[in-house]
Design a protein around this nucleic acid. Structure first.
Lengths: 221, 221
DNA sequence: TTCGTTATTCATCGACCGAATAATAATACA
DNA sequence: TGTATTATTATTCGGTCGATGAATAACGAA
């Protein structure tokens, strides 16, 4: 009489494909963003995605591999969009420090506003940037450094008075500024006693561009 | 024959006091910085500090309480130093955006360079700023927001053409910039193909001040 | 139909973690 | 000296975690 099997049992091949894969990545993204790498539990990711935990391993390998897949998915999108937007900015007649900055910032900005998934990735990205582990550093380099180098080249051309070392350093400053700003966007409100809260998001991006462009253009000391 | 007690046994009261307490906080700081809150293990902290794990609980309470103690220790130092340096800057004849910026940046900068403990705290701080949990947010607010508000006031006086909302936002930008820069100081090297590596640290702080001061002074759009 | 391959679940293992409790040694105080 | 208090250790508990291997159902090819 032990043979009574509850009806919910369906190993096999019901929902395979990129669809399920993406759903797993979505939930993993949310969990990693909320709890960090160590704090996220594969069990919870699997449950939220409606699959068995062993399936994560079947698809992605270890926990670290899953994390990397999450990071590369959106990171690759952003890098690709930056590449396209930089090409467009360089070809446009209004080429300027501001237009290059916008080409760099817009992909992340739009991902942040695109919905909870995009916002989760921004948070996750901020975490990765704060992690000192060698693996996190490699990941960031692999995903982002190539596109960054092109932007440094473009800005050096636009700011011929500045040596490359100074431009490189200022670009590094810039990365910290926007990462923090995007991640903390909701909390900026507090410092300004609510005044920022009433500002439309598009205006905030403008503010950021103004701030960063002025910093980049500052004469060398 | 079970009564043979190995000589290494010394419960009691050998090394009590602020000394041991600080050693525990030091090791906790290093572990939390390296692995994050969830990733750090109380067992390792205790081992590295040369004490039993239960002693952590006796001194600090839960893991979260220990973390908070770590954060408040150095955070309090920084806030205190900022308060003093801002007073001094406001009273000095060369009061300027730059001098206010330096008063804000110097405590963290010197902590970073003061040794491995200080550097560990900077890393930990960057992690806390990237964590979305409500508790982390409260902690940051409690430790840092009061001093931040004074700096916003001072900068508003120095930049009367800018509305307070804009100054507040730019100060928020600024926080991200220096946090990221301090934490990534060692890695900035890569982007500049080694050129930054040869720059003396003091010069890097100057570069940061120039960048931020220009951003703060940018005319409103 | 048959059979191998692929996708999925189930069940479990060993490790580790944070917390808790009880025992115990050093000190302070009477 | 004796006794209460404080600082420290030893040990254990329940829980959770990532990983793993075996079982199994669906599908594609023959």
């Amino acid at each position: 009489m032990d043979t009574s099997q509850p009806p919910r049992r369906k190993p096999g091949r019901p929902k395979a494909g990129a669809d399920l894969r993406d759903r797993i990545l979505d939930e993993a993204e949310a969990c990693f963003a909320a709890a960090g790498f160590a704090g996220a539990a594969l069990r919870e990711i699997a449950t939220r995605a409606g699959v068995n935990q062993a399936l994560l391993r079947y698809y992605f390998g270890s926990k670290q591999d899953l994390f990397d897949a999450v990071f590369r998915r959106r990171g690759g999108m952003i890098s690709g969009q930056r590449h396209v937007l930089l090409d467009r900015a360089l070809a446009a007649p209004d080429l300027s420090v501001e237009s290059v900055l916008r080409a760099y910032l817009r992909p992340q900005w739009e991902m942040k506003l695109s919905g909870p998934g995009g916002a989760a990735f921004i948070a996750l990205q901020a975490r990765v940037h704060a992690e000192p582990e060698a693996h996190a550093l490699e990941l960031r380099r692999e995903v982002y450094d190539p596109s960054l180098r092109r932007y440094i080249d473009a800005l050096c051309d636009l700011l011929p008075a500045l040596p490359r070392a100074v431009v490189s350093m200022r670009v590094a400053f810039l990365v910290g500024t926007y990462l923090f700003m995007l991640n903390d966007l909701g909390r900026l409100t507090d410092l300004s006693e609510g005044q920022i809260h009433e500002m439309p998001p598009e205006h905030m991006l403008d503010q950021l561009v103004v701030f960063l462009a002025a910093g980049l253009r500052a004469p060398e000391i």
